[in-house]
Amino acid sequence: MSADTMQVIQQFLLLLQYTLIFSSVLMMVALGGCFSEHSGVINLGLEGIMVIGALGGALVMRYLPADASGLVMVLLVMLGAVVFGLVYSALLGVASINFKADQTIVGTALNMLGVAGATVLVKAINTASNPDNPSSIIEYGLPRQNFLVTFKIPVSVEGGGAERFLSFEFNWFLVVAIVMLVAAYIVLYKTRFGLRLMACGEHPQAAASVGINVLKMRWSGVLISGVYGGLGGICYIMAAVSQWEFERGVAGFGFLSLAVMIFGQWKPSRIALAALLFGLLRALSNVGTGFAALQALNIPGGVYNMMPYVICLVVLAFTSKKSRAPKAEGIPYDKGMR
């Protein structure tokens, strides 16, 4: 194998690695949105939920002793993200279900509050431990290793002296994402809970007339979206780097996930496919410049970074007309309405 071939293969492996991990994030968060919307609540606050979920996981990594066992670490980090996401999504629940607030505005508020709140909290923590460090960064380089399995495949390169490796990082979050996907599919389509949940998002008056507690189902939908969003958040910040600056939020990934959800027509299987597509585009912006062919085109890196968002706009502009959103989403449930 020539050194060039190896270079290309390595780039492809890297692309695959990033595609899978970004797709997992998009899919989990989109599935979260899917639960919320099927129950009848538009969740525009996924971005904020991701930030808070990420914060929960990052705090666990910061405070857990470094010698904790790998499995315990993985489980506790995920638990932290889930709990933070869940609690934070309860704000959406209270405001939009019980107080019948405008769901769009509540979601937007959640996004602003998420980034700001996380920044303030992390800065306070950092300043408290070291007055000279007012940054909003949490580092998790070591704990992060527990989530990764690195495969090294030795290859002999023509003319090269030392043995070289093709490497591929496997991330346990991929498994988590697939489990969450299967769970979402089964819950929505095979269980009583799923049937009732979707009835509440389509025609809550019909659901109520057969004795279903619409408010309870909507709360369930919103809280599940908090769980999925929180997991997506921690997965996202750990995808490629070993520290996170919380001022940056999650760079619009929550919104991208909403696009994935719409493109996926609120159906788990299609959401998975849509997530792969958008994940690939996002990964290209990370590693695309590594390909010699793409390098030769001499396109500024910013273009690759824009791609997922631009394509998202284009795709939605063409597909959203046919979209099959849950009919009653966004409308607070009113018992008196017929």
Binding site: E202, H203, A206, A207, S209
Partner: peptide, 21 residues
């Protein structure tokens, strides 16, 4: 009811069993 309480994107069977599945 005068205005049917049916979920449009569900099958007939799903609508019948909804609530007493």
């Amino acid at each position: 009811h005068q205005h049917f309480k049916l979920v449009e994107c569900f099958s007939v069977l799903d609508n019948i069993i909804l609530g007493v599945e």
